[in-house]
Computed example of a mutant assay.
Amino acid sequence: MKSILFTETGKPTEILKFADSALPEPGPNDVRIKVIAAPINPSDIMFVQNLYGIRPQLPSGAGFEGVGIVDAIGEGVQMRTGIRVSFTSVGTWSEYAIAHHRSLIPVPDAMSDEVAAQLFVNPFTAYAMVQDAGVPEGGWLMLTAAGSAFGKMVIQLCAMRGIKTIGTVRRDDLTDELKALGLTEVINTETENMAARVKQITDGAGVGCVLDAVGGHIATEAVKCLAKGGTMLIYGLMSLQDPSLNAGLLIFRELTVKGFWLTDWMRRVDSQTRQEVAQNVIGLLASGKIQLPVEASYPLEQITEAVEHADRPGRRGKILLKP
């Protein structure tokens, strides 16, 4: 079978290789999936660079989620082949992938392959983080890198819940699109003072929560935007730089700064909560109430072009690999 592999960690465009691999056989509690499509997410790129919460066991496949057809089942699995599923695994950028049967989510007919391929990482993270943020209807939530696929998902979820949002961008050409999705206010961090603008927008109160994907200077400034008792949830480090935290702000505003990783959240909550989130996310996506745009699709043979496109500024949708 055709797949994407890497034998060393590093820059994705340099180390990811299109290769022939043996067709894998499912073990106990596993299934084999014929992959239809898989997205390129920031977590995938961090994994390839050995910057993620789990470390690659070299040689390794790449890609954490996708959509496909159950092709073969292992011992102990009570399901039939031929079912279309969203799934998570390591090595979804391949013609076939092995996944634990508990990672599978049956996909409704109304959901396209392009949406189903993105069903887990961004939608579940967005839904869980908006829940954990604890911002009430009418309150303010701020998110950095608002133009990302994840940011767009958060904006739409907050708009449905009546939560007002402030999003940071580096280019003004995203403003109209983000406003159309429901973003309340936009701050261009290249031309505006973030803390001053947030103070102006919120009449001096600040925001109840910040969802940060950038780190570095942006996160440092974003902490200043929190209201008394506010929380920053850090879920990414796009700048590859740690923020500097002002101890005085943390003490006298009683602020909380903590990390968020979907893998740990899924372990932490009970099965009923996971099922409720899955049902809500599937319902929103299948109905079209939440949009997950795709900008381009590539075959596995064009992995270098695909990851370059995924890293391109100004991208307006997810990049998919279609084996």
Rank of each mutant, 00 (worst) to 15 (best):
9 T>Y: 09
11 K>D: 11
16 L>F: 03
18 F>N: 02
34 K>T: 13
35 V>A: 08
47 F>W: 12
48 V>E: 06
50 N>S: 13
53 G>P: 02
67 V>W: 10
74 G>K: 04
80 R>D: 14
85 V>P: 13
89 S>C: 15
92 T>P: 09
96 Y>M: 06
97 A>I: 14
99 A>C: 13
101 H>C: 15
109 D>K: 08
110 A>R: 09
112 S>E: 07
114 E>D: 14
123 P>E: 08
132 D>T: 00
142 M>E: 02
146 A>C: 03
152 K>D: 01
153 M>I: 10
155 I>A: 02
158 C>T: 06
159 A>Y: 01
162 G>Y: 05
168 T>Y: 06
168 T>L: 07
170 R>W: 06
171 R>D: 09
171 R>W: 05
172 D>I: 01
177 E>Q: 13
178 L>C: 06
187 I>G: 07
190 E>F: 03
190 E>M: 12
191 T>N: 10
193 N>T: 12
195 A>R: 13
200 Q>P: 01
204 G>N: 09
207 V>Q: 10
216 G>L: 07
227 A>V: 00
238 M>A: 15
244 S>A: 11
262 L>N: 08
266 M>C: 08
273 T>C: 07
277 V>E: 05
281 V>R: 12
281 V>C: 12
282 I>N: 08
288 G>Y: 11
290 I>H: 07
294 V>C: 11
299 P>K: 08
308 E>V: 15
314 G>P: 13
318 K>Q: 14
322 K>M: 15
323 P>A: 14
